[in-house]
């Protein structure tokens, strides 16, 4: 059994990396968003193989909506959203390469050198229950502040985007910025 689990782990791990790489190899905004989702789904599947069912599945559940919204916003704002004219998704190659390599090395070092605690969970515990108890117990303040933070996000976002609010047009009396260079 554990042979199959190991095999699946590697399959999903490779899938997560390859789909993550494909995000930058496509010209289409929709494909880029959904490759990223595929990458997340693979990570969710890895979590499931590691017996974190709830976390893995909830990741897959959430990413559908989030990545669809990302696809939609990218289609809305990016020129040539379907990539009908080929283009590159990667800019600042050198900085990106250095940052990527640096991050990989740092994380790999953490993985290899850190002293991970070896505390196998007693069988029969349900991580979801633990999570719930934690949320309602010691982490209650964190949880409620998350609510306030989310509200702030909502109101901020709506205030920024809504043009025809109840107080009239948001850009009333405003002027277009001058785009031409003045000599």
């Amino acid at each position: 059994m554990s042979g199959i689990v190991d095999f699946l782990f590697w399959v999903f791990a490779v899938a997560a990396v390859v789909t993550g790489w494909l995000v930058f190899r496509t010209d289409s905004m929709v494909r880029a968003a959904y490759w990223l989702m595929a990458s997340f789904v693979a990570v969710g599947a890895i979590l499931v193989t590691l017996d974190a069912q709830f976390l893995g599945l909830i990741l897959i559940l959430m990413m559908a909506g989030e990545m669809t919204i990302m696809a939609i916003f990218m289609v809305m704002y990016m020129m040539n959203p379907a990539g009908l004219n080929p283009m590159t998704m990667v800019h600042q190659h050198r900085t990106a390469a250095v940052a990527g390599a640096g991050a990989f090395v740092a994380l790999a070092l953490v993985g290899l050198l850190a002293d991970f605690p070896d505390r196998p969970a007693p069988s029969g515990t349900d991580p979801t229950v633990d999570l719930g108890v934690e949320l309602l117990g010691e982490s209650m303040l964190v949880f409620e502040s998350a609510g306030v933070a989310l509200l702030a996000v909502m109101i901020g976002a709506i205030a920024l985007v809504s043009k025809r609010g109840r107080y009239g047009d948001a850009d009333e009396g405003s002027e277009e910025p001058i785009l031409e260079k003045t000599e």
Binding site: F54, I58, I60, A64, M67, D126
Partner: peptide, 25 residues
């Protein structure tokens, strides 16, 4: 027989959005 059965069901259903979006797009 998964512990997080309704999460599995919900995840499958929410992903429908992706399939339909791709189908139209």
């Amino acid at each position: 027989d998964v512990d997080a059965g309704i999460v599995l069901f919900g995840a499958a259903l929410v992903q429908v959005m992706v399939a339909v979006f791709l189908h139209g797009w």
